[in-house]
Simulated scan of single mutants.
Amino acid sequence: MELKPGFNKHGLSRTIPPDVKRQVRQRCGFGCIKCGCGIIQYEHVDPEFHEASVHDPASIVTLCPTCHANVTSKFWSKATIKKYAENPACLQTGVLKHEFDFFSDSYPSIRIGGVTHTNCSTPIEVFDRPVISIKPPETKGGPFRISGTFCDRFGAPTLKIVDNEWIAYSDSWDVEVSAGKIIIRNGPGDIVLKMVVDPPNSLSVERLKMRMGFVDIEATAEKLVINGNSFVGLLFDGCDVGLSIYSLRRPAFNEHWSPLARFIRAQACA
């Protein structure tokens, strides 16, 4: 019997349903079970796909493209992969990670909700602490280096970027990485961060629900809202700092304000 392309002998499609993928990601710590890379593919282990009649989350693992190639090219056995699945790398370290590509000729464009920043070294800061920042290349022809810290609405870290290396956390409810997007959820339908990159020129935050101290920051694809104040269609170009929220460098209107702000800053997410 001739098999239909994309289906096995049981009529099972290679397309894994989204809810099954999520269960697999959660069990595997959201990254490659072998090396902890945040870029993943899905591999049927036991049974293998050609023998599977259903997409069983317990029989599928997450592997990065390199580790996956070692399996499909027969350099690694499925038995070895099953051993790695017993103690996934990301659950051991608590993180998954990978790198952004910003080998650009000029400062990458940063868009957060309805606000775009070009040629700006610190697009947004809260209490003088950058939410996201850009440093020039260390050497000629090197990449611009983006760093940043993102939290959820309770101040718990969701994503950290250190000189283009992004780091997500395996204790999240869900971390989904694909097609240039990083989506972090705190629960079903509750997206606290959606980041989209277009290498090597831009990074966009299309969804954000975040709190630093008493500052609430929310973003959709078109709007940035900070403590209830909306920003739409703004462009900051050639600024050292784009948006500075509650800067401690400015004189306080009340003599008690600066110490209070410093205390709250200390409580903000690291």
Rank of each mutant, 00 (worst) to 15 (best):
G11V: 06
V54D: 07
G36F: 15
I16T: 06
A52F: 07
D46L: 04
Q26L: 07
D46C: 04
A58R: 08
V61E: 00
S73G: 07
A52K: 10
F30S: 04
H50F: 14
G31P: 03
Q26H: 07
S59F: 00
C67M: 11
C67T: 06
C35V: 08
V20M: 02
I33C: 12
L3C: 03
C28L: 07
R25F: 12
T72C: 05
H50T: 09
Q23D: 13
V24F: 01
L63A: 08
H68A: 08
E48N: 07
R14T: 09
V45C: 14
Y42H: 01
R27P: 01
P57N: 04
T15N: 11
D56C: 00
C64Y: 13
S59Q: 10
Q23F: 05
A69D: 14
D46I: 03
H44L: 03
H10T: 02
V45D: 06
K9L: 10
I39L: 15
V20H: 00
Y42C: 00
H44T: 02
E51L: 12
L12P: 02
S13D: 05
T72H: 06
I40G: 03
C35L: 11
I39A: 13
K9E: 13
I39S: 12
R25Y: 13
D46S: 15
S59A: 15
E2F: 14
K4C: 05
D19I: 11
I40A: 03
F30K: 07
K34F: 15
C28F: 11
F75G: 11
I16Y: 03
S73M: 14
P5N: 09
H44I: 01
I33L: 14
C64N: 06
G38K: 05
E43M: 12
K74M: 14
F7S: 05
S73P: 01
Y42W: 02
H55T: 01
F49P: 05
L12T: 03
E48P: 04
C37H: 10
D46V: 03
L3R: 09
A52V: 06
L3V: 07
C32T: 08
L63W: 06
N8C: 09
E51V: 04
C37E: 09
P17H: 07
E51S: 12
S13M: 11
H68W: 12
V61L: 04
V61Y: 02
Q23N: 10
C35F: 10
F30E: 00
A58E: 14
C64L: 08
Q26E: 12
R22N: 08
I60D: 02
V54L: 11
P65G: 11
R25T: 09
Y42V: 00
K21H: 10
I33T: 04
T62K: 04
V20E: 01
G11L: 04
K21Y: 09
P5K: 13
H55C: 06
I39W: 14
P47M: 01
R27E: 00
Q23G: 03
E43L: 13
K34R: 14
G38P: 10
F7T: 09
Q23A: 15
G6I: 05
C28N: 13
R27T: 01
P17R: 04
V24M: 00
H55M: 08
A52I: 08
F75K: 15
G11C: 10
G11F: 05
P57Y: 00
K34H: 12
S53E: 14
K21E: 05
K74S: 15
S53N: 09
E51D: 14
V54I: 15
